[in-house]
Design a protein around this nucleic acid. Structure first.
Length: 270
DNA sequence: AATTACTCCAACCGCACTGCT
DNA sequence: GAGCAGTGCGGTTGGAGTAAT
């Protein structure tokens, strides 16, 4: 016996919400409160799925939602939090009052990802996405859907294989010399531009796979370290401002190991 | 002016988690 | 403990608007 669908799809409205639907939903929730989303649409006189109602309320109709352009400060917060936490949009949203996870996610995908510029990796992903959409359109016309998408980069070793600013870890808790030599070479004067890009890429990369790789599946350790990274934000910035590329990475990783040793998996940053 | 390509964002979808029975 | 409903989350899609050709 499979689970019943959240709502009967037949006869329900889909797509953009009309003003009338917004009014009905807002009025009902203001009168009766939210929750009970499955039964809410029928009670409110809406021909919508409960999930759709919840999404509409949470993301657009709820009081206190901040609309409009993201400020530079907000962009900065998003980039910093994304660096540490990855695509945990709901968490990031808690740090930006009035902004929803959906809005932040869209803003990241349409503006910040490009602004942050992960280098060739993101360009490849964008290209892949566009190529996929084009293929899909074509295939829809042909009434034959067959979409092949390139997998996104999932870890740093993949990232390393696609960029000059490569990074990997060896089993004996040190950065792989061969790879590091490549990163170091980016710091040479005749490749200054590349060096800047390399630092940016490393700093903005999603480090969570690295943490998971070293800490296994112990989520408490991962969270403890993430907290420490946030607490040590200034120190990390200081480290990353170092002139020598290899030193930056060594310092960062050494700090990480120290945290683990000091805290025995429960690193205390205070 | 018409067509094509691209950007952006609202909405949808599927899965995971939690709490209740 | 199993099964289910309710809810939350992140990835993905559809399509309107705009820019480029």
């Amino acid at each position: 016996m499979g689970r019943a669908p959240c709502c009967a799809k037949v006869g329900l409205h889909r797509g953009a919400w009309s003003n009338e639907e917004d009014k009905l939903l807002t009025h009902y929730i203001q009168t009766h409160g939210d929750g009970q989303w499955r039964s809410l649409p029928s009670k409110a006189g809406l021909l919508r799925c409960g999930k759709s109602c919840r999404l509409r309320w949470m993301n657009y109709l709820r009081p206190g939602i901040k609309r409009g352009t993201f400020t530079v400060e907000e962009d900065d917060i998003i980039i910093r939090l994304h660096t540490v936490h990855g695509n945990r949009w709901s968490f990031i949203a808690t740090e930006l009052p009035g902004r929803t996870d959906n809005e932040i996610k869209n803003h990241w995908n349409s503006h910040l990802k490009r602004k942050a510029n992960y280098g060739g990796v993101e360009n490849q992903l964008d290209a892949s996405h566009k190529k996929s959409k084009k293929k899909k359109k074509i295939n829809q016309k042909l009434k034959k859907v067959k979409i092949t998408e390139e997998k996104p980069v999932e870890n740093l070793s993949q990232l390393a294989s696609t960029q000059s600013a490569s990074l990997s870890l060896s089993k004996n808790n040190s950065f792989d010399n061969g790879v590091m030599s490549g990163a170091s070479s980016c710091g040479s004067t005749d490749q200054g531009g590349e060096a800047d890009l390399a630092v940016t890429d490393l700093w903005l990369a999603d480090w969570s796979p690295l943490f998971e790789m070293e800490l296994g599946s112990d989520q408490q350790q991962v969270l403890a370290f993430e907290k420490c990274v946030l607490d040590l934000d200034l120190d990390l910035e200081l480290m990353m401002s170092s002139d020598d590329e290899s030193m930056k990475l060594e310092k960062l990783y050494t700090e990480y190991l120290n945290l683990l040793e000091d805290g025995g998996g429960e690193a205390d940053c205070n």
